[in-house]
Structures are given as C-alpha cells and as structure tokens.
Design a protein around this nucleic acid. Structure first.
Length: 638
RNA sequence: CGGGGCGUAGCGCAGUUUGGUUAGCGCACUUGACUGGGGGUCAAGAGGUCGCAGGUUCGAAUCCUGUCGCCCCGACCA
C-alpha cells in the first residue's frame, strides 16, 4: 500500500498549453508524466507502475511462448549499422555521436544488428535453433516531429524480440515462431484490457514477407485500417488490397472525348483542392498525377573520383544518372528513372503499390530535380511521360477510364496543363496521350500500365469476398511482428551449418511492442471528461481509499487496516491521506483513473461500512459492510 | 526540411504595437481563521537573471542583431 502524501502524484487542473491529445493532457494532468525536452518525458511513479504492469504481462506471455529475456546495450558502434546499410537508411532519425576516441556510436532505435552480432558470435549449430530472445529497453529515435506526448516521442520504452531459425517452413521454422508470437501478442493485448485489431501490414522492401500490426482501436489514432466485415480481413491502409472490379465496358482508356481539349488559366492552383474550387469541378473528375523517382537514381549524390592524384573530379548527379541509363553497365539498373502515377483526384497514391507494380523502390521526386527533367510540378498531366525520357506511366484502374458506364457518357477529366498555372479540361486518354495507350498497357514492355495504385478506402470492394465492401477505422499501432527472412543474417554474414553440412544464412523474425505507447494508447481508448479510466490490469493502483478527514486518527486507522486486508488479497492500494477537501480528492481519484474507490467518512463509518464506487460507473456508489469490502473488490476485479 | 507561432513565477496567461514608477493576473504553494462529501471563503505572505548573448538608449520584458529552446501545420496528393 502507498500513501498519497508520501509519494509524488502532482495532479493539476491545467495541462501544459501545448498538449492536445487526450492521453497527453490526462497523463500530464494526472501527474504520470512530465516533459523534459521535445519528445522526452519523465515517467513519474504512477506511470512507472503502469509501465511495469504492461512489462509484467509481456514477460509472462513471452516466457510462456519460450522466449528468453536479455538486455542489450543502448549504445552501439556505428560500424554495426553500416554492415546493413541502415546507418544511411535511418539518417537523421538516429541519435549518434562520437566518443572521446573519436569513434562513431549511436543510441539504439532498434536492435537487429546488435542481436545478430551477438547471435553470430554465439550460435554455430543448427541444434541451437530455433531461438527467441527479447529485451525491454529504452529506445531512441530522433523523430522530426515528436507529438502527442507518449504516442510519438524520441525516447520510449519498447519490447523487442528476435527469433532465429534454420528454415522458413516446417518444425522450428520462422513460420512456426511467427505464429507463436502472433498468439502471444493476442494474449498480451487481451490481458492488458485493450480493444484492439490485428491487421496485415506493409512488409516493406523485403518482398513476400508477412507482417502484422496490432492496433488499439481508437478514432484519434494515426493509422487507418480497413476491414472486411464478411471475412474478417483487416489491413493497414498502406497495405490494403482492393477487390477486383469489372473493367470498363469500352476497355481501359476507351471511349471518345467529352469535348475539345480546353486549356484554362489556373493561377496559383497547384493542389487538387485549389483547382476544384477555382474551376468548380469535383475532385473525382480530376486526374491527380504524382511524380516519383526510382530510388536508385534518387539516392545518388555528387561524388568525387580520383583525378590526377592531386585534384579530385566532381561527378554530378546528372552525369551519374546518364551513365546508369545509357552507359555500358546500364543493364544493371532500372531502364527508367521517373514514374508518374495517376489516380482520381479524390484518391490517394499508395507508394507501396507503385513500388510493387514496377518492381523498384520509389521516392517522391524532389521538386527541383523533377522540374529540371521537364515536369511542371503542380501542373503535371498524364501526357508528361510521353515527352520525358526514361519515364514510366502508372494509371490507377479508376483513372484509366474514358467512358462513364454509370451515366453512359464520356468521362469528363480535368488535369494538369504541363505548364505552370495551367490545367486542361476534357482530357481524353485515347486522343491526348499521343499513343495507343490501350495497346501499350497490354504490352509489358510498354511505358504505360494500369493497376491498383491507390489507397483503399471505405466502400471499396473487399479483396476477400466479392460481395462485401471495406470499412475504415482508426488505430494506434502498439505491436508489430515481422518475418525478416535473411536480410540481416546475410548482410552480417551470419550463416551456420545445417544437418546436411551446408552453410546457410539464418532466418530471422522480429517482434516489437511499444510499451510506453501502449500506456498512452490505453488512455486514448479509455477516458471520459473527468479523466482516465484504467482497465484493472494496467491501473497503477487497483483501489484508492479516500479518507475524508485525514486528521482523524480513527479514520486513518480504519483505512490502514482495510488497505492491509486488500493488499493481502493481492490488490495494489493507494490511500489518499492528504488534508484536502472532498471535492479535490474525488476529482483527483477520477483523474488518475483508479478502478475502485473506497470512501471512508463519518456516515459510512457509523454503519461500519465504506462507500464503494467503480470509476467506470456513474453515480455516487453504495455502502458496503467493512467485512464484505475485500469480497466486493474481488468481484469487481473479476 | 518548408511555413506559422511561442519563450515573462511550478502550471496557464496578460503586459511588448507606442521604451519610462516597485513587471501583473488566475491556479498551485506557505501561515492563520472560518469551513468540511464533487476542484471552498477571507486575510496575510513567499516566489521572477522577462530564454540567452550582444547592441541602441539617460532608461529595454518592450526597439535592433545574433543565438538557443519549444509548439503547431505541411512535408505522399505538388
């Protein structure tokens, strides 16, 4: 048991002025956290108690799943990250510095390299696999913009687990280990009392690997998830497929124009929204064109090569691109540099789908580079690729339409004029693309392709059930499990002998839980206008005993006795012994969200009772005989 | 990284435009009295390098220059 007066719970009526998210406001007001720097927080005693409870559940379930806890260092040599190329990949997200001997070191944002380094030095037989190792530790990511208190911060607590296998399939394989973690995660979040969804997630550039995210269901979440009510399919919007739809009756790009191509002056209207407002058209009649650059070209930097021994020669980016596209080694590189993706104005381009369709990583083109290549950024039309070398055109199914089967009329499209401050009306694919687009699209070697390029949205056909439509919800990602494959073991040369005496790279999985984010997500999910409403499993205290008269030795004595009994029964008890007015104590108890409140005052004491109230229930509570209090609490705790 | 904004008491803010007594207000804090079941009342107090550095001036929270920190929006819809 703990007395309020002897711990630190600095509640406040006012939240910091910059707090906006409910979890940020309530955790700050409730005296759980305090900001030290941007995205860096103190965890005060209440927060720490809850964090320890989350950790306890995590440990319990992971141990039960056969994983072993260890602790890796937060500081690691940069050399490790350079082995896998992630030093560059992380870039500024990494907290890094040089030590006194001028060695580059970093604070771990995650630990694939460190654990692989450990594993390759200690595991040398297939007989040692499978193995699952995890840790609970502070992680560091120098986010550009930390926000919403603990939901996105620069220093946070994470559980990260890594599994090692000889094979992907079969007994002891990655699939089996992955499934075990999947179940463990289900157990963990269920035991935490969270309302969550499991969704298919974007697996990233490592093709084919499975990945799932565990999302706390909450409309204020940063992530959009789509679900199919008929089949239970659920996916992150970054990943979600869209069900097949019939091709338009006149074929892709088919159908005559809706009118003469009409060039209109649209000053300072680079965005869909501005154009629609200016021209009074709906976004669904716009063709939105987004210019991407294939990553291999985008990441080129100006380099210096040896010259005559004294002066190094500067090789510009453009020169290198030219070399890669047309030089003798051009076969080693993609044969196009630009990708123009076209979607309907009311849709959003999905970068992952673009990547999958063309088979290369892409990044949004930097405006300057794209403009140098002839794109009028803000006013690009689907015709731009025709006039640009090494450019691929990717058109979404909903945009590659020339005839509107619903209205029986030609599609009316507005799109960019390929000229600063100009758009065109009555764009027609067949007439204006300047080539036989339909033929091109059927031919894999052509520069045009039609496909699923956009983000799914509510109302789209389900990819798993022909009749069903997708629903959209929001969520907060608290867990992510991932089949890594051999990405890290290959990069770090971690291969061991199998039973056939063949040396093979080890197959890995990784599994993360944002422990501190889980705390915040729980508050986002479960609060009311008076404060936090903790589920029993995560509450910093299960019971708060509110003593009405803190200077009444008898009342305090009763509270102590009761707290002792409850503690013996396994409850965490906080006694509010502060010399405050009743209103203050009740407000604070509600604010910090303790599930059970027992009030000791004259009226109840006269009847040898206490007032029993659940945080989640409205109203004033009821009198319970002293002898029945423990039983009542046990009943409430389930 | 682009745009916008803010740094004044533990927290939330006013004052800065137009330089001028001792820099204010609310909450919180301390002491006392009254009060006593949903953020009390009265009284008395304590608490400030006005982010930092430099400059202008008889005089700077206020004007100028620089710098640091923080927040919001956008950065994938051009």
């Amino acid at each position: 048991m703990q007395r309020w007066s002897r711990t630190l719970i600095p509640t406040s009526k006012q939240a910091p002025g910059d707090a906006e998210a409910p979890s940020h406001i309530l955790l700050a007001r409730g005296g759980f956290i305090r900001r030290v720097a941007a995205g860096v927080y103190d965890y005060l005693p209440l927060a720490w108690r809850t964090l320890r409870k989350i950790e306890g559940i995590v440990r319990d379930e992971l141990n039960a799943a056969g994983a072993s806890e260890l602790l890796l260092p937060a500081v690691a040599p940069m050399d490790l990250l350079e082995l896998t190329g992630r030093a560059d990949e992380y870039g500024d997200l990494l907290f890094s510095f040089t030590d006194r001997h001028n060695r580059d070191v970093y604070l771990g944002p995650t630990h694939e390299e460190v654990i692989t380094d450990l594993a390759r030095g200690t595991i040398n037989s297939y007989k040692q696999l499978p193995l699952n190792l995890y840790q609970i530790q502070t992680k560091f990511r120098d986010e550009f913009r930390p926000r919403a208190g603990l939901l996105r911060c620069r220093e946070f607590i994470m559980k990260d687990a890594y599994s090692f296998h000889m094979d992907v399939d079969g007994p002891g394989g990655l699939g089996e280990g992955y499934d075990a973690m999947y179940s463990a995660y289900e157990n963990i979040f269920t035991r935490c009392g969270l309302d969550f969804s499991i969704v298919e997630a974007e697996a990233g550039p490592i093709g084919g690997s499975a990945s799932h995210e565990f999302m706390v269901n909450c409309e204020s979440g940063e992530d959009t998830i789509l679900t199919c009510p008929a089949t239970g399919y659920a996916a992150n919007v970054e990943k979600c497929e869209i069900g097949e739809r019939a091709a338009p009756s006149k074929g892709w790009f088919g159908g005559g124009p809706s009118g003469n191509l009409d060039k209109v002056h649209t000053p300072e209207c680079p965005g869909i929204e501005e154009v629609c407002k200016f021209l009074k058209v709906k976004p669904r009649h716009m063709l939105k064109t987004v210019v991407f650059e294939v990553e291999e070209f985008a990441k080129i930097e100006t380099k210096f090569v040896a010259g005559d021994g004294k002066i190094s020669l500067r090789v510009s980016r453009e020169q290198q691109v030219e070399e890669m596209l047309n030089g003798p080694d051009s076969g080693l590189y993609p044969h196009f540099r630009w990708v123009v993706a076209v979607v309907r104005g009311d849709h959003e381009v999905n970068e992952g789908k673009v990547r999958d369709l063309i088979g290369h990583n892409v990044v949004l083109a930097e405006s300057k580079c794209a403009e140098a290549a002839g794109f009028s950024i803000g006013y690009v039309s689907p015709r731009a690729p025709v006039k640009t070398d090494h450019c691929f055109l990717l058109v979404d199914r909903d945009a590659a339409v020339g005839f509107d089967d619903n209205s029986g009329k030609p599609m009316f499209w507005v799109t960019g004029g390929d000229e600063q401050d100009y758009h065109v009306k009555h764009f027609n694919w067949g007439r204006d693309l300047g080539s036989d687009a339909a033929t091109e699209s059927a031919d894999a070697s052509g520069f045009v392709r039609v496909g699923d390029v956009r983000n799914a949205e509510a109302g789209d056909p389900s990819p798993r059930d022909a009749g069903a439509t997708l629903e959209a919800h929001r969520g907060i990602e608290v867990g992510h499990i991932f089949k890594l494959g051999d990405k890290y073991s290959r990069a770090m040369d971690f291969a061991i002998m199998d039973e056939k005496q063949e040396r093979r790279p080890v197959v890995m999985g990784c599994y993360g839980i944002g422990v501190s984010r889980t705390l915040a997500a729980c508050v986002e999910m479960s609060h009311d206008e008076n404060g936090i409403v903790w589920p029993m499993a995560l509450a910093p205290y299960h019971v708060i005993i509110t003593v009405m008269k803190a200077d009444d030795a008898n009342a305090i004595g009763v509270a102590d006795n009761l707290a002792g009994e409850l503690a013996d029964a396994g409850f965490d008890v906080l006694i509010d012994d502060r010399d405050e007015r009743a209103g203050v104590k009740f407000k604070d108890a509600d604010l910090i969200g303790v599930p059970i409140r027992l009030t000791i005052g004259d009226r109840a004491l006269a009847e040898d009772s206490v007032e029993f109230k659940l945080r989640a229930d409205p109203g004033k509570g009821e009198l319970v005989k002293m002898s029945g209090v423990v039983a009542a609490c046990q009943k409430a705790a389930g």
